[in-house]
Amino acid sequence: MTEVNEREADLLRVGRWLQSWSAQLSSEVCGIGVDLEEVVRWEGPLRLEALFTPAERRYCEGKARPARHYAGLWCAKEAAFKALSGKITVNLRELEVVHTADGAPKIKFLTPVGNVKPLQLHISITHTSTLAAAVALYTHQL
């Protein structure tokens, strides 16, 4: 499979996931964000401390292929930022990707988000050997 076909397949999978998942929500969708990164951009020497929290760096460095996970976490932050844009003022450095006990990713806000409706930010991250992608869905209860 060529790199372009692999990208298209990843985007189609993300789109199908979003359609099936959003149909089941009992919430109002306030924002959607998507991001796609090439894993190779996260290999080699980078200033990771400027982009990721110590906990995020420990998580990625504990994996067999850290670059895939750095790319995935970055996509999650970018997707969350895009989903929140125009609704909540937030800086990428104020977002941390954490994982639940079962491994599901969640966004943790490192600073207060202000007076907003009850915030639910749903995140999904995926990666292949060459690409990472994430989708963020910002909702509030109906």
Rank of each mutant, 00 (worst) to 15 (best):
R93D: 10
I123M: 13
P54Q: 12
G62R: 11
K87C: 07
V29C: 10
A50F: 02
G62M: 09
K117N: 08
Y59A: 05
S129Y: 05
C30W: 04
I123S: 04
L18N: 00
K117D: 12
P54C: 08
Q24M: 11
E28L: 13
Y59M: 06
A67M: 13
Y138R: 04
P105Y: 06
E37L: 06
G33I: 02
L137E: 03
H99V: 02
D35T: 04
E8L: 10
E38T: 07
W17I: 08
S129D: 14
C75N: 05
L92S: 06
V39P: 00
A71C: 13
F52T: 02
N5T: 06
I88G: 00
T100K: 14
S85N: 12
L18F: 10
P105Q: 12
F109M: 13
L51C: 11
L46N: 05
V39C: 06
V116W: 05
E94H: 09
A136N: 07
K117I: 09
E78N: 11
T89E: 09
E6P: 00
Q120Y: 14
Y70N: 00
W21K: 14
K106Y: 01
F52P: 01
V34E: 06
G72M: 13
P54R: 11
L95V: 09
D35K: 03
H69T: 08
K117L: 15
I123A: 09
A64I: 14
T53V: 11
I125R: 03
Q141K: 13
A67Q: 07
E96M: 09
V34W: 02
F109P: 00
A133T: 13
G72E: 11
V116H: 12
S22E: 13
K77E: 10
R41T: 10
R65W: 10
N115A: 14
R68I: 04
A71D: 07
H99R: 15
R16E: 14
S85M: 08
V135I: 15
A79Y: 04
P66L: 14
N91T: 10
K106C: 14
R47F: 00
E43G: 03
L36N: 04
A101S: 12
E61A: 08
Y138E: 01
S85F: 10
K77P: 03
S129I: 01
E3M: 12
L121A: 07
A134W: 00
R47I: 02
Q120D: 15
A134G: 07
D10G: 12
V113M: 12
V40M: 10
L36G: 00
T130K: 05
V39A: 07
H122S: 14
E78H: 08
D35S: 09
V90G: 02
T139I: 08
H140M: 12
I88T: 05
V90D: 02
L51E: 03
T126Q: 08
R57M: 15
G114A: 13
E56P: 05
K63F: 06
L119Q: 09
E28F: 03
A83I: 11
L121G: 01
Q141P: 06
K108F: 07
E37T: 03
L84Y: 02
V98K: 08
A23K: 12
S22F: 05
S124R: 15
L121T: 04
V97W: 00
L46W: 01
L92P: 02
N5E: 15
V90K: 02
A101V: 12
R58V: 11
D35H: 03
L25A: 04
E8M: 10
A64D: 13
A136I: 10
V90F: 01
I125S: 03
Y138N: 01
F81K: 09
R93S: 14
W74D: 04
A50T: 00
S129Q: 10
